[in-house]
Each structure stands twice: as structure tokens, then as C-alpha cells.
Design a protein around this nucleic acid. Sequence first.
RNA 1: GGGCGGCUAGCUCAGUUGGUUAGAGCGCUACGUUCACACCGUAGAGGUCACAGGUUCGAAUCCUGUGCCGCCCA
Length: 1038
Amino acid sequence: MHELPKHFDHTSAQLRCRELWDAGKLWHAEPQAGEEQAPQPVFSMVIPPPNVTGALHLGHALNNTLQDILVRTRRMQGFRTLWMPGTDHAGIATQAVVERRLLEEEKLSRHDLGREKLVERIWAWKEQYEARILGQLRELGASCDWDRTRFTLDERCATAVREAFYRLFQQGLVRRGKRLVNWDTFLQTAVSDDEVFHEEVKGHFWHIRYAVVDPQAGEPSHVTVATTRPETLLGDTAVAVHPDPAAAFAAVEAGLREKIAAASAKEKPQIEAELDAVAARRTEMLAGLERLAGMARAGRTVRLPLLGREIPLVADEWAKPEMGSGCVKITPAHDPNDYEVGLRQRLPMLNILNPDGTLNPEAGPYQGLTIRKAREKLVADLEEAGQLEAVEDRLIDLAHSDRSKTPIEPYLADQWFIRMAELAEPALAAVENGSVKIHPSRYAKSYLDWLGEKRDWPVGRQLWWGHRIPIWHVEGVAAADLEAAFAGRGDVAWAEADGEPADGSATRWFVCCKAEALGVEAIAGRPLERDPDVLDTWFSSALWPHSTLGWPEATAELATFYPTTTLITSRDIITLWVARMVIMGIFNTGHVPFADVAIHPKILDRYGETMSKSKGNGVDPLDVIESLGADALRFGMASMATETQDVRMPVEFACPACGQRIEQTTANRTKPRIECTKCGEPFRTQWAASDADLALPRGPAVSERFDSGRNFSNKLWNATRFVLMNLEGFEGGCVDAAAASADLPLEDAWLRSRLATVTTEVTAAIDAFRFADAARTLYAFAWDEYCSAYLELCKSRLADPATRASAQAMLITGLDTILRLLHPIMPFVTEELWQHLREAARSRRMPWDATDRDPDAAPAESVMVARWPAPPASWRDTQSEERFGTFLGVVGAIREIRARQNVPPKTVVTVVIKADDAKQTLLAPMLGAVATMAVAEVVDVGPQVQPPAMAAKVAAAGCEVAVDLAGLVDVEAELARVTKDREKLGGLIEGKRKKLSNESFVARAPAEVVAKEREQLAEMEERLASLVAMAADLRSRA
RNA sequence: GGGCGGCUAGCUCAGUUGGUUAGAGCGCUACGUUCACACCGUAGAGGUCACAGGUUCGAAUCCUGUGCCGCCCA
């Protein structure tokens, strides 16, 4: 006899399973060979490559669990299945991490080290973290094709990047232009909007006077503007006033009146006060503003304080009459709104900053100062000059760089752009016409909205870590020189530079080369200089689905696996990544990169905050894998992956000493050490820094939400343990798939039917990316139906030699099917059990295996490559399911009475059941099962049976179940229960009667609904009558 | 400011086209440990489905508005 230990040991099982899968490379996929006759259906998917910035977090665990579920399912379904793994170099994020460490540990900046050395350091970092990430993915059980692992900065990707950029360049889709960027003065690079976070800080609002140049009679001698950033006045190129202040006031007042009309009584007074204030301002200021607008139209100027530069007064709607003085200073090169004004009004754009955040020569006497110092000095100078009118305290929403945590400076810089006008069209069409489907479909809107704007894509980054832009600059040469220099070169293209300030000196050229090296250093004596920028990290990511398969070469991989089938990702990168993959996929290959995009939720902590290491509220997937097992982690993830909501995950610290779980709160999550609330022992957290704290054992952060997955693993383990203990004498073979339900024991017909139904449901759920449905369906079926019902029923059949063999066969059929269906979600425990079952029941066959396998062959060497279940449609049998429901109802009724009467668990109760002929027939063979499951002896079943004198009765599934209480009765308990039931039932009956006496309902509701209501009412009334009789009976005995 | 999502049991979440006595897991209560599993079993308590209107014979579900939370885009 094959006996398993009592508990599933996930640690050793995970090792064994991975060895098995790796030894056979069961995750590997070869492309279709050309001569193959019947092409196998293909399923392929690329991983969203994790950044090599650090270790994987729970979001990755979720993302990769869902991908693996899909991949494993398709593999078992017989698809030629490829899951392409890899990592992303993550430009700025990785460089920032390495630079920060360099500064902290060696007090060196990247400039101290130089480009080459820094890049070397980053490669070393990448090697370390890539290994760690890939290790984590394997621990999670991801069945990627590890032989194909790629990196967005490896040679193959680099070739694709250069080729793609070259093609864009050739088609005139690359341009150079000015752009106001978010400048990180610490890292000295532009950062994208999504790498910026906003934080409120305390600041001031300075009111500054600008003198009017040659004021005429009736004109003010100065205008006042207010700013939170006085130092930017050095770059001011205008002061703006609204062109039509009267209209602007009218619009604001109309808006407020509308608000009042719609407002609640509570809010009204406040808005009314606001309206009064605006009206007062209008009275006071309108004339002055009208005069200023007139002056602006007349082309008058004002004088910039301190520098004395003369700048125009312009009329622009950006100036808000209802705010401040109604006038606003315009600094186009250092403020996004002012930049727009600058473009509209054709103002000069004056940059006053150096890349490191100090002021440049444009700042005159303030040159060389940092922004902070310049502000102090400038404010002091203004005050001394008497041009500072007022200073207010104010909270300021300040943009910070996510990478360096320093304030962002808006900064005008030359940038590389990809033109989107043409490229976006086919990508929009792909989603509109359904060649790319996004699930859930509501996310298509954000894709279409974003892409519809067709904003040019700024692709250059002033970094050292990334794909170097394959462009060289040269000036002062003629077109003929270039033609001569690159004669016969098919890999070089050039174009006259645009966007650069034309100082009239010499023609400037951009030369683009798709080879790794240009091979030409000078043309006509003029040097070629390589552009220092690297490409946005999303550029290489955009090529990921085809670059990983070998594009631009026409590889067999590309032919077989591209376009890929599905992409699974999170919603925050629909625009950054998904849209760009569609664009570049179509541009480079002519095909969309994938047919379906499945979006999954985000994982938040118990307060609804996103998890992050810096907040200290994260959970390390490895902690969960170690303590509860990868299957528990995966099962939890799968059951959480619903379509609508983000996931809230309460986090707990696990005490390393006693295992107690301590709730993680905003208060304790940043502490370096925590004391256990139960045993009092201290443990350290991720924040531990002192030697004393570091010496403590670590308390991992986990979540109770993975417990049920762990429990479920163990349940499956023990169900299999039970089956294996009862296999003696098993002769094997297959259950008779063609047997008619009527010829089987009821529970077998029921289980077969359920297996068919559950297989259909689970398959459909996975197909539709409803992973939570699949997980929950399987959990309920395996636990409540297979274990709690079927397995219990088999106990008596296994004891009887006449029925033992059939019970074994069906038990194995059920278990085998469950293991296969669950394998994609919980690969380790199912594999481990599969191996045990394979050994103990080598001769077993499933009907869906027989078709294409040698009938004498053993079951598949791994459940990973076993066939996905396909129970015959004939197994579905609603009648058996219904009948089985009757049986379970009877068992439930007896258990209910036992519990109420406090009957000791081992005391056998005597039961009679009043049931019609049909139910009597179906219950007759099940009485042995009732005896096992309810510890009851059923002495009589039939339409005419009389309950014993002293009995507790419960109506269930159309039968009346009566338990003889002689010697047991607790009359009080019974009376209490009967009374309570009567009350509840009375209320329900009243509701139903009311509904049915409503003529409108009877007339308008569908006939079947009315009939159902009537039926229910009749049944309830019957039950009530029975309860009344019971109560009377009980009282007479009390 | 615009768009999207959420608000259902103490907690975390299901609830398919409007028709159930609104469900699950965890937690809680009671009882139960040789006999697959205490990471277990049996039974039970617990909800005016955020709020206010509306449509309908009938609303957790559809519509309108409000509030709070979150995300995306400006």
C-alpha cells in the first residue's frame, strides 16, 4: 500500500517538480517545421519583462501567475505553446538605482566615473538582479521557455531597435524639436510624466511690481504679478492680461450661478459668498484691467525688475481676471502653461538654467547660483528695490522626480520625437475593428483616447544606460559629400537637420545607421559626432513581441509564433506599452502583435494604498512561497483576479518565534523592530539598520489571503492520500465512458455529470480570462463535492468487495480529472500527487487519453503534459444531479436535527422518511450512504410512513425527514426551533401572498414566474402547517 | 477640470441578460480529535446591498443625482 505523509511538504515538492520539468524541458517549444503535415494550433505569449531594478513584488507574482495559468492550460490542450521570458533594462529606473548606490557607498557621481565605467557598473547590477528575477519566476512555477530568455538590451534586441529606428528615420518619422520637459537636476535628464509625483509643500506667494515703460496719462505706473517662483522672472518674456476682462468676469459669474442653482442648501451660502466676492472684484478692478488690455493691444511694454529688460504686455486668456491682480508673468521656457502662451503669442523662450540646476549667463548677476540661492538673493534685492509688494504663505503642489526625489524643473530642451500622426492610425483601427481585443472592454477607451491625440512620442533620454540613438551629427558638408562617403551602403541614411536653431553658419545633417558601428569618422574633413542620447526604454519594449522572436530576420520562430496570441498585463501601462507595441508591431511586421490583451487588477494594502518598498507595506512573494508554498500564492492570486475591483490585501507580520500574525498598520509598518503581541519576542523588519536590530530574526510580511490556498493544497494532498490507501486490488483500466447513467450508482452518475460540467465551466472561465471563477469553481467542487460528498460515500463501497472495484475506478477518475484541471493554478501539488498516483495506479486510463495514446502506455510522465480533460457530453445528466441533491438534502436534514438536539457524534439515530414513490426509489439504494454520512439508521421510506410518537421533523428536498427522539429529546430546543421557523416562514408567506394578490404582478409578469411563486407559496404553506402541528405535539409533551 | 472603477456580513470579495429566502473564504459561537485531512469535520449567528430620487408588477442589478475611496489623463 502506498501511504503518503499527513501533510503536503511544499518546499521539497517544489524542488522535485522543477527538476522534473527542467529535465524534460517540458516548457520548451520548437517552431513548426516547414514540412510538417498537419500544423498544430499555436499559442504564444511574451512576458511583460520585469525591470532589472530590483526583485519581483506581488504585482509581478499576480501577473505571472495568470500568464502561467493560461500557458499551462493551452499546453495541456495540445497547443504548440511558447511563453517567451525576459527582463527589461528599464533605462532611468535602473541607472538611478545604481547612481544612488554609487553616491551612498562610494560618494561618487556618474561624472566621476564616466560613461563607460558607469554602464559597466549597471551591467553588473543587471546580471545580479536578472538572475534573481528569473530565479523568482521559477520559484513561482512559471513555465516559460527558459532556453529563449531575452533582455531588452541584448544583441538581438539591439539589432531590432536599430533596424526599427532606421526605418522610422528613412520614412521621415523621426524629428528633432524643442520641448518643455520635466528636468531632473540631480540625474540631469528629462523624466517622463509618469515618473513624476506631486507633493504639497509650504511655500510663499510673492507679489512683484513691474514698472510700465513710459506710462501715459491715466495709465498705471506699474503692474503687479504674483508668483510662487520669483527666480523665474529672470526668464520672463511677457506679462499677460486677459483680452476681454468683462466677458471673463461674466463667464465666471454665470458659472457660479449655475452651481448655486444645482447646489444643496448647505453649500449655497458658500458659493453665494464666492459670487459676491467676484462681483466686488469686478466693480473694483474691471476698469483697470480693461485699460491694461487696451495697452496690450497697443503694444505697450513693461520693465523687468532687477534686470531692466523691456518685455511686452500681451493679451492672452491664460490671465485670469478673477485671480490675484489679474495679470500674470510669462516664463515660456520654465512653465508648461506659460510655454503654451509663448507659442500662441510667439514670444521668445528664454532658458535660464544649466542642466545641473544652476543659473546660466541669461540670469545676469545671478549666474552660477542654485535656484534656491538665487531665489533668496532675488527676493532680497526686490525688497531693497521696493518692488516687492506683498508675501503670502501658501501650500504649493510641487512636482518631484520619482527617481531622485528632488524637485522637477520644467526645462526647454532639444528632444528626439517619433511622429505619431500616421503611425497611430492603424493602431487605432486595430482596436476599433477588433483585431486587437482588450479585456475587460472598458479599457479600450483609455487606449483609444490616448492614441487619438496622436501626440508625438519623445524618445530621447539624456542617460547612459540604454540603446544609444543610432544618429550621428555632422555639419558644413554638402549632400554630395554624404553620398560619396556612404556610397553602396544600404545601412545608412541621412537628412538635413531640423529643429536646431539655424544660425546661418553651415548645413547640419543627421546621419542614421542601423549597423552597430558607422565606420566613418569624418566626411570632407568634418567630424561625425554620435548623438549622446539613449532611447526611451519603452522603445525597445515596443518591439518585444517580434524582436524576441528574431525580427528583422525571417526566423522560423517569427513565422510560427508571431503574431502572439495573448498579452496579460496591468492597466497602468496600456498606453505606455500596449499601444506602442501595436504601433511598432504593425510598422515593422505589418501585423498586430497579439490578438487579445487581458488586463488584471492592482494589488493594494488594507488601506487601499499601492504597495511599495518605500512605504514598507509590501509583501515579498518569496516570503509567501517559503511559508505557505507557491501553490498557495498562486491560488490566492488566481482567486483575487476578478474583473472589476482592485485587490485589497491586509498585510501581516509573521512572528518568527511563535508564528503569531501581527496586523501591519500605518503605525508599525515603518518600524525597524516589532515585538510579538503573543510571545513578546522581538523581530526585525526591512527597516532594521542598527546592529542590535539586524541580529534579530526577520519577521516576514505575509497575508492571510493565501491561507485558503495552503489549506486547499493540503486538502488535495489528503484526498489523494485517502485514494492511495484504498487502491489495493485496483485492476486499472478506464471507467466505462459509454455506460448509461441509469446503470450506475447514483453517486457515480452524479460525479460524472459534475466532472463534465465543471470541466466545461473551468475551461470557459480560463478562455475568458475569468481566472477567479476558475479557481473558485475548482475549490468548491474539489472540496465540497469530491471530498465532502463523493469520498465519504465511497467509504462504505470500498468496504464491500462487490462494489469496491467500481468505487476505485470512479474515485480515480475524479481525482485524476481534478489534478489536471487544477494543475495550471497549482502546478506543484498537482504534479507531486500526479507522480504518486502514476506509480500507484499505472494502469489507469481516462477516456480522453485513449484516443491518441498507446492503450498500454502509462499515464503522462508529468501532469504538465497530460491531456486537458474532455469528458463525453453524455456524462452530463441533470436528473442525476437533481436526485443527488435530494439525497444531500436528506443527509443535511438529519445532521441539522442531530446538532440541534446535541446528539453525541457516534450515537446512531433512527430515521423515517416520508417521500413519494419516485424519491423512495432513488433513496432506497442510498440508505447505506445516509447511514455513513449522517450516522443514522433509516428504518422506513415511503409515501405512507408514520413518524414515531416523539420525533423531530424537517422538510427537505420534498421529503419529510423525521428523527426518532425517544430517549434523546430536548423538547425546549425543539420548540424554540419550531417557533423561530414559524415566524420566519410566516413572514415569507405573507410577502408571497401579497405579491400574488397584486393583480398587476399576475397580469404582467411572465407566466412561469407567477407559477413558480405559486408553487413556492404552496410549499411554504404546507411546511407551516406541519410546523404548527409539530409545535402542538411538542407542547402536549412538555 | 475630464474619464474610468469601487462602495454588498467584523475583514477580503462573488452575485452572468432585473424575478434566490442575497452567497463564499477568513474571523466569530457551539459541539467533535485512533478510523484521508484540526492546514479538519458538523451545525449556527451575522447584511434596510453607501445615500436620495426615478423607471418597473418586481431593483443589489437599469436611469439620474449626491457623498466617500481609488486609478488614469490634463
